[in-house]
Every structure is written in C-alpha cells, then in structure tokens.
Deep mutational scan, measured.
Amino acid sequence: MDVFMKGLSKAKEGVVAAAEKTKQGVAEAAGKTKEGVLYVGSKTKEGVVHGVATVAEKTKEQVTNVGGAVVTGVTAVAQKTVEGAGSIAAATGFVKKDQLGKNEEGAPQEGILEDMPVDPDNEAYEMPSEEGYQDYEPEA
C-alpha cells in the first residue's frame, strides 16, 4: 500500500510541476504579447503594419512553449490582441483601416495563427491545408 501511495504522490508532483510550467509559459506569452502591443503603439504610420505582424510573430513563438489545451486559448487571445492593436492603430490615425491585415508588401496577414497546427491532446499534428499553395516548377 505504501508503494501505491508513494507512486500516487510522485504522479501528483509531476502534474503540479507540469501545471506550473504551463502557467509560466502562458505568463511569458502574455508578456511578449504586451511587449508587441507597446511596440505597435510606438510606431509611426509606416511601421504600424509591420508592428502588428511582430506582435503576432512574438506571440506565436511563445505559444510553442505552452502545451496542451492552453495553446488553443493563448492563440485565440493573441489573435484578438493583434486585431485590437490594429483597431487602436486605425482609431489613433497611425494607419488607414484599409491597410490593416496586410503586410508591407500588401499581402493579407489573416491566418497567421489560424494555420498553425495545434492539437490540445498532444496526440497528432496535421499540416495546414494546401489550398493556398501553388506547385513550383523550376525553369529549365
């Protein structure tokens, strides 16, 4: 019985440690998101679009440190934060509304985080759909 109880105690310690790591990862992701939003706020009209992409990228980098179902929630929060940063930029006159959601080359930025393969159960990952990809044929 002692062996059984000791095993359960060790398992509990492992769960607590994993929860603490997840909590730490979420806190880091939130900190990076805040950094990115402050970065966007300090940019001029020309830099705002690039700044919004930076927020998304920093958040995406930190999301990889967070495991399990938390990833889905962090990704949703990050996307809403990026959308909010863009709205703030438009409201303050840093950028025109028609410039939001495009990178410096004018290509749409939507789907940055949505296409990231995420499995809350950590069982399997699927690649994003290939609808947006084109076949590449090298020139002879």
Rank of each mutant, 00 (worst) to 15 (best):
G67D: 01
E105W: 01
T64Y: 10
V82I: 05
K34Q: 01
V66D: 01
G41E: 01
D2Q: 07
N65L: 06
A69P: 02
N103G: 04
V82H: 04
T59E: 00
A90E: 03
I112A: 03
V95Q: 02
A27S: 12
E83T: 07
M127W: 06
A107L: 07
K45D: 00
T54A: 09
A124L: 07
S9E: 10
Q109F: 07
V15L: 08
Q24P: 00
M1R: 00
K97Y: 11
S87L: 12
K45H: 01
K45Y: 07
V70A: 04
N103L: 08
E110S: 07
E35F: 09
A124R: 13
E131P: 14
T64E: 08
V15Y: 03
A85P: 04
E57Y: 13
A27R: 08
A29D: 00
V3R: 15
T72L: 05
Y39P: 00
I112S: 11
K80T: 09
G7T: 09
A11W: 15
L113W: 07
G36K: 15
P108H: 13
S42Y: 12
V26C: 14
A53Y: 05
G73T: 14
T81K: 02
E61T: 07
Y39H: 05
K32P: 00
V48C: 04
L113M: 10
Q79I: 08
E114I: 03
V37L: 11
A11I: 14
E110I: 04
A17K: 10
G67L: 15
T54V: 14
Y133C: 06
G36E: 04
K80L: 12
S129F: 04
P120K: 10
K97T: 07
L8C: 01
M116I: 06
T44C: 11
V77H: 02
T75C: 05
A90S: 15
V71H: 03
A56R: 11
E83K: 06
T75Y: 10
A19V: 14
G25P: 01
A140H: 06
G84W: 13
E104D: 08
A11Q: 00
P128V: 06
P128R: 11
A78K: 03
K21H: 03
T59M: 01
E105H: 01
K43H: 05
T64M: 07
T75K: 08
L113H: 09
E137N: 07
A27I: 15
A78D: 02
K96D: 04
H50K: 11
Y125M: 03
K80V: 08
V37F: 15
M1P: 00
L100A: 09
D98S: 15
A85M: 12
T92D: 03
Y125F: 09
N65Q: 11
G47H: 12
E104I: 05
A53H: 09
K34W: 15
V71F: 08
Y133N: 14
V95M: 07
T33I: 03
V52A: 03
K43L: 09
K6Y: 04
K21G: 00
Y125E: 05
L38C: 08
Q109S: 09
D115P: 03
A78Q: 04
Q109E: 12
L8M: 03
T44D: 00
E13S: 15
K96T: 11
T72F: 04
N65K: 03
A140W: 06
A90M: 14
G14E: 13
V71S: 08
A85E: 04
K21Y: 12
K58D: 01
T75G: 08
Q62H: 11
D121I: 15
Y125N: 08
S129H: 07
A69D: 14
E61W: 10
G47F: 15
V74N: 02
F4A: 00
G36R: 14
E46W: 04
E123Q: 06
M116G: 04
V3Q: 02
V37N: 00
Q24D: 12
G67W: 09
A53V: 09
G93R: 02
E46A: 13
K97C: 15
E28P: 01
G106P: 10
L8S: 00
K32H: 15
A19S: 04
V49T: 13
V37H: 00
E126Q: 01
E28Y: 08
E110M: 09
E130H: 10
A76T: 08
D121F: 08
E57Q: 05
K58W: 11
E105R: 15
A11R: 00
P138C: 10
V55C: 06
P128I: 10
L8Y: 01
A76K: 15
N122V: 14
K60A: 02
K45A: 13
Y133K: 01
E46I: 14
L100F: 15
M116Y: 09
L113E: 12
E20I: 06
A56L: 13
V26E: 00
A27K: 13
Y136M: 08
A29L: 08
E35W: 15
E139L: 04
T72M: 12
Q134F: 10
E20Y: 13
E139C: 02
A29W: 14
V37R: 00
E123F: 07
H50V: 02
A29V: 09
A30H: 02
Q79A: 08
T44G: 03
G31M: 13
K97S: 08
K102A: 03
P117T: 12
T92L: 07
I88S: 02
D119H: 15
M116C: 08
K23F: 09
G41S: 12
A56Y: 07
N122C: 03
E126G: 08
P128N: 13
V49M: 15
M127V: 12
A78I: 15
Y125V: 12
K96L: 08
A56T: 09
M5H: 00
E123R: 08
A76Y: 11
D98E: 13
G36S: 15
T54Y: 11
V118C: 10
A76C: 08
A56D: 01
G106R: 11
Q99A: 06
A85V: 08
V52Y: 03
E104H: 09
V52Q: 01
E20S: 03
K60T: 06
